[in-house]
Amino acid sequence: MIPVDPRRVPKLAEMPYGYRHLGYCQALLGHTVLRDLPEAKGEESDRLYLSHIAWLEGKGKDELDRMLKIKRA
């Protein structure tokens, strides 16, 4: 836990959106925050999310591989 002063608004806009709160806390502790880490957005992320739903619905390995564009030998 990091105590915060509610009268001071942190500068979160400087951090990448997907991990701005974590990045802000790391910066407070003196760590270097990488600005180019991947975020959970875009086509690949959407496919992964949809494959989780398909798995919960009982879809088989072949269907999941097709959704994720995985080619097994």
Rank of each mutant, 00 (worst) to 15 (best):
L29N: 08
G30V: 15
R8F: 09
M15I: 12
S45G: 13
R35Y: 03
I53L: 10
L56Q: 06
R47Y: 01
E14N: 06
S45T: 14
E39A: 05
I53V: 13
V9A: 08
Y17P: 02
H21M: 04
L50P: 03
L37F: 10
G18Y: 00
L37Y: 05
M67D: 01
K11C: 15
K71S: 13
V4W: 02
A54T: 03
E57L: 08
D62L: 14
Y49S: 12
D5Q: 10
P10F: 01
L68N: 09
L29V: 12
A13F: 15
Y19W: 01
V33N: 00
V9F: 11
G42W: 07
M1N: 04
D36L: 00
L64I: 07
H31L: 12
G18P: 00
K11N: 15
Y24D: 04
P10T: 04
G60S: 07
L22F: 13
L28A: 14
P6A: 06
P3S: 02
G58V: 01
M15F: 14
A40L: 14
T32E: 07
W55L: 05
E14W: 08
V9Q: 10
R35N: 02
L50C: 12
R8H: 13
D46P: 04
K71W: 12
I53P: 01
Q26Y: 06
R7C: 09
D36Y: 03
K11H: 15
A54G: 06
R8P: 04
M1D: 07
L34T: 02
K69Q: 10
R7Y: 08
E43V: 14
D65F: 10
L12F: 07
P10H: 05
R47Q: 05
S51W: 07
Y49A: 14
A40Y: 14
P16V: 02
L56Y: 11
Y49H: 13
L64N: 00
E14T: 04
K41Y: 15
V4L: 02
P6C: 09
K61G: 09
S51N: 06
R20T: 07
C25K: 05
K61R: 13
L28C: 13
M15S: 10
K69A: 01
K11L: 15
P38I: 03
L22W: 12
P16C: 03
R66D: 03
R7M: 12
L37T: 03
E14Y: 08
P3F: 03
K11S: 15
A54S: 05
G23T: 00
I2S: 10
L50Q: 09
Y24K: 07
K71P: 05
G30D: 14
M1H: 14
H52Q: 09
P38C: 10
R7G: 08
P16H: 05
W55Q: 08
L68H: 10
E39M: 06
T32L: 09
D62C: 11
K11R: 15
R35A: 03
A73G: 11
D36K: 01
C25L: 05
D46Q: 11
R7D: 09
M15Y: 10
E39S: 01
I53S: 05
M1Y: 10
K11G: 14
Y19C: 00
I2C: 11
K69T: 02
R35V: 06
M67L: 09
L22Q: 14
K11F: 14
A40V: 15
